[in-house]
Design a protein around this nucleic acid. Sequence first.
RNA 1: UGGGGGAUCGUUCAACGGUAGGACAGCGGACUCUGACUCCGUCGAUCUAGGUUCAAAUCCUAGUCCCCCAGCCA
Length: 708
Amino acid sequence: MKEHEDSKEPTPETDGKEASTPLDFIRTIIAQDRKNNKHGARVHTRFPPEPNGYLHIGHAKSICLNFGIAAENEGGLCNLRFDDTNPSKEDQEYIDSIFEDVRWLGFDWGDRLYYASDYFEKLYEFAVALIRKGKAYVCDLSPEEIRQYRGTLTEPGKDSPYRNRPVDENLDLFKKMRAGEFPDGSRVLRAKIDMKSPNINMRDPVLYRILRAVHHRTGNKWCIYPMYDFTHPISDSLEGITHSICTLEFEDHRPLYDWSLDELDIFRSRQIEFARLNLTYTVMSKRKLLELVQEGLVISWDDPRMPTISGLRRRGYTPEAIRDFCDRIGVAKNDSMVDIALLEHCIREDLNMKAHRRMAVLNPLKVVIDNYPAEAAEEFLIQNHPGNPEMGSRSVPFSRTLYIEQDDFMEDPPKKFFRLSPGAEVRLRGAYFVTCTSFVKDEMTGKVIELHCTYDPSTRGGDSPDGRKVKGTVHWVSAPHSIEAEVRLYDRLFTVPNPVGEKEDRDFKAYLNPDSLKTIVSCRMEPSIKEAKPGETFQFERLGYFCADSKDSSMDHPVFNRTVTLRDSWAKIEKTLESKGTPEKAKKPHVEKTAEMKKPEATIDDFARLDLRVGIIREAEAVKDSDKLLRLMVDLGEGRLRQIFAGISKAYPDVSALIGQSVIVVANLKPRQMKFGLSEGMILAGGDEDNLSIATFTGSLVAGKKVS
RNA sequence: UGGGGGAUCGUUCAACGGUAGGACAGCGGACUCUGACUCCGUCGAUCUAGGUUCAAAUCCUAGUCCCCCAGCCA
């Protein structure tokens, strides 16, 4: 435990940014502008969400950027502005959640809370001004006609027949639009720019539409609403925003943004675009997240599996970790997909420092200490944080009957298994050394249901007076003193890194991870857990970081969400152990890059370069338009299925017979792009066209095991 | 096939004509009353082809690939 030697105190103002870190391109522009005394060296940004959904981690990137830049620059300010120009999608619920989320992230907009809807009157006046200048006109074309007149990406549009209406007529019509004299959708106000522009946004874009909907702030006052492209530059201008930072898809809109400010001749803000955040194993669009909520695929917007700010909060993420993450991912214009492992790293780093340690047993296995007096019990004082005595300690009861984790015992352990097995000695964390003397199996299931151990009284507190070492330390709870609790184990929401980019043959929801939530209802925990407050975070030793659920946890019924596991090097060892199959296999030879050693015959080493694995076929279907190929989804124990195309259709007219079969897969081939999709491996089969069979195993092998 | 953007280790961000660097991930090791933490080591990249230059990720030319745009959404 050494991490407290330079404990930092992260705040929104100081975390991240060391003076030496190079500026991203936006901060470089701003530094340049300040140097040139542009806008009197003033820096004023804004965060402009539309209240049509909950904020997610991608918004956090924008929030950290906008508020962060304001905070870094002397006198800098950042406004919170709701871009609420489409009443049909927006709702007060979302506004409230946005307040909560931005504040929770640690940012403060002071008295600078704005709504685009507050500018409706001014916006209307600006529109009138544009009409007077001959730069806008009322158009009677239907939506369908407007689309047709707009042209296509490669063909120019043509002028609307209403394009040259006299100013007075436009003024009159626009007034009547506002007065509600026309039905929804019958007319729009358009900018008069250039129907032949190669930039479609400049082909006389719609500025106002007629829309009878109750606005969450203005109620029924308006039946015309301004479009984003008209509203945004004017809102920025009215607020004196110096740098209007938005995402890449608005790059094409910048000429229109500039056009509006030019024509209206008002304060000139500069729009700068950066790449939005994408994260592996999740989706990041409000539309898709809404879909998950509405279809009940997750419980709610704040479901701990969601990448929403509220979901992350409920999961146990801290504002500090999210801000740190946003600092680390950087700001640029490249389309990027950030590894969720980085987010997990950030939360582990933060929580490692802050979280009190507790002992909790998720899957209890009863242990009886045979030589411990039956009626006795004692209390051990255990530190809340082994690296930081200032965090205090708590009392943990011990008795003859304990629970340990089922995983911490193996009847027939492999090498390097440092936990309990027959005859093995381990330390019970903070208590005693114990040695397993026997175990009891359920006769029906063959499952180990009880362990018997002896303890060494001289090792009280966990140290041995004779200096003997034990390799393993396991966590435990005293059975009679322990309390029951529910634990929700969360995992990634999707099984593939990029659910929306999966070669478009399937909907993103097809890749939802069925194991993204596992609930365990009868966990046993040390009694101090009773005191846990909703939202409070602990490290359950050797398991991970968990927080008491803010909605469902109570003293009577504690419920914990797993925020993130601890890094688990044992899991890796286990994996390699499995794949090696036999112990003490020699190291794989390094593949030399020298090309001169080409040999006519393959060596055993060459063969060893093929990674052969046990694969279990989970799905199988014939490939349309192919008389040979089957599309197989094969489980290699990787947490996702691999798609493999195999030319074995003739041998298996009934594809369903393949499902469940254990086959041999060449697992380390470079994936091959085929006409029908990516093939990520090869299945070994024998025979010829007429007499063909895949190589299978009898018996039950675990997916992913090495084949040799 | 129009317009706007973008291509640097597996991922992500830097390097702004002068030693391609950091973080995450991976791998190896040390330490350890958490197989955690921490520490050390290691692997590893300039889209391609030409050109300019003493010197190119950076400048020029020609290609290739990827993303965005045809809402009365934002």
